[in-house]
Amino acid sequence: MILQHKIAFNLKKPHQFLALGFGLGLAPKAPGTFGTLAALPFIFATMQLGWQWQVLVAVLLSVVGIWLCGKTADDVQVHDHSAIVWDEIAGFYITMIGAAISWQSLLVGFLLFRFFDILKPWPIKLLDKQVKGGFGIMIDDVAAGLFSLIIVQALFKTGYLG
Rank of each mutant, 00 (worst) to 15 (best):
Q48W: 11
W67S: 01
P31V: 09
Q104I: 06
M96F: 05
P41H: 09
V59L: 15
M47A: 03
E88V: 02
P41E: 07
Y93L: 02
T72N: 07
M96H: 05
D74N: 07
L68N: 01
S82Y: 15
L37Y: 03
A58R: 08
V63Q: 02
Q77G: 13
Q52R: 07
L40H: 02
H79M: 13
G50A: 07
W86E: 02
L49F: 12
V59H: 08
S62F: 06
A90C: 12
G98Y: 04
H81C: 14
D74G: 06
A45L: 12
P41D: 06
Q77E: 14
T36I: 11
W103Q: 01
S102R: 08
K71N: 03
D87S: 10
V76E: 05
I94R: 02
Q77A: 15
Y93E: 01
F42K: 00
L60C: 13
G35D: 13
G32E: 11
P31W: 08
K71R: 10
V55G: 14
Y93C: 03
V57W: 08
V78Y: 14
V64D: 02
A38Y: 11
V85P: 07
L56A: 15
T72R: 08
T72W: 04
V57Q: 05
W67P: 12
Y93N: 02
L49R: 00
Q52W: 13
E88G: 06
G65P: 12
Q54F: 11
Q48S: 12
L37V: 06
S82F: 15
L68W: 03
G70V: 00
D74Y: 01
C69A: 14
V78D: 13
M47P: 01
M47R: 05
T36D: 09
Q48C: 07
D80T: 13
A83S: 15
P31Y: 09
F34W: 15
I84H: 11
G32F: 12
W51K: 08
F44C: 01
V55M: 15
A83L: 10
V63C: 01
T33D: 07
G32D: 10
P31G: 03
G35W: 14
A58F: 09
D75I: 02
W67L: 01
W67K: 00
Q77I: 12
L56I: 14
Q104V: 04
G32K: 10
E88N: 04
W103T: 00
I97T: 06
A39L: 05
V85D: 05
S62D: 00
I43P: 14
I43D: 12
G35T: 14
L37F: 11
S102A: 11
A38Q: 04
I101M: 12
T46C: 05
I97K: 06
I101S: 14
C69I: 07
G65I: 02
V57I: 13
H81V: 11
I66P: 02
D80C: 12
F34Q: 04
D80Q: 10
I66Y: 00
P31R: 04
F34V: 12
Q77K: 15
Q77T: 13
L60G: 06
F34C: 10
